[in-house]
Amino acid sequence: MSLNRKYIPIVVTILLFLLMFTAGSFRYTGFFSLQVLMNLLIDNAFLLITAVGMSFVILSGGIDLSVGSIIALSTMVSASLVQQHGWSPAVVIPLVLLMGAAFGCGMGAIIHYFKIQPFIVTLAGMFMARGLCYVISIDTITIDNPFYTSVAQTKIALPGGSFISISAIIALIIAALAIFIAHYTRFGRNVYALGGSEQSSLLMGLPVARTKVLVYTLSGLCSALAGIVFTFYMLSGYGLHAVGFELDTIAAVVIGGTLLTGGVGYVLGTFFGVLIQGVIQTIISFEGTLSSWWTKIVIGLLLFVFILLQRVLSANRSSLKQ
């Protein structure tokens, strides 16, 4: 066996991305460029950040439906405080991050200590955060604070005349950090163990409670950060931002090769899962005539394929055990 079977899903994901990118390059002139690649990151920075947090949640065997709403709430709180109350971004940004982390921490604590399914708890969190947006304002709040606009417009030049945004760099740093955390820290390994078997983790004496709560805290923090990045991108706060976004995020993680049952997957896979979603959008915009809803159709199909692939692999796995 030349290829370790545990790498199959991630290899499939990476190959799929390369295939799509190559296909696009042959079909459309101007597709094959560093800038198109960079745009994938620029346009999907907030998706990447959220999906990184979601990866930890799914690896631990849970799910977080509140991420889209937390993003909306983050944009709303940022916009309201900066624009209507004149607070400094230097205060607002840490505050928003803290809020996201606290929100996630609360949900994690409820999930663990009251032994309630993450699906329900984060569903409640989703409604709550979304509702809170409208308490602040039912309208869009446009941001014209100089810090936000300058971050939004800053282009960092790369060799070859292409550029990258600050948001994309933040996303890349988060992804790199997450890979390190997942594979080289005890917290990361405990998340995998928890996803493998919670019962075993308890009996092996791992800090199950702390890990579980931290996972949701991390996801809340990532969502808040994604919300801030989203604010840079949209320059507004609005209660209808990122509606249904939690599902895009889950799709990116699953297409990245992470098992929904937990314990198996890689953050790097999530990175490529996000890029695949981006490349589908890019291809459809290059095509010109296709409705952007085709993105959803293709992602839907891909999800089916990946879930089937996982099923087949895990079926092999259980037959191996016999």
């Binding site: 080289y184 820290t185 005890r186 390994r189 078997s197 009996l203 198996v264």
Partner: peptide, 27 residues
């Protein structure tokens, strides 16, 4: 068996007490 089937053999033996240097697991 109360171990985590998704982790490697080595991890199952060491998890929770992995050898580390500056917080980094020494695989």
């Amino acid at each position: 068996v109360n171990l985590c089937p998704n982790l490697t053999v080595a991890e199952n033996i060491f998890i929770g007490r992995e050898p580390r240097k500056f917080g980094r697991i020494l695989w």
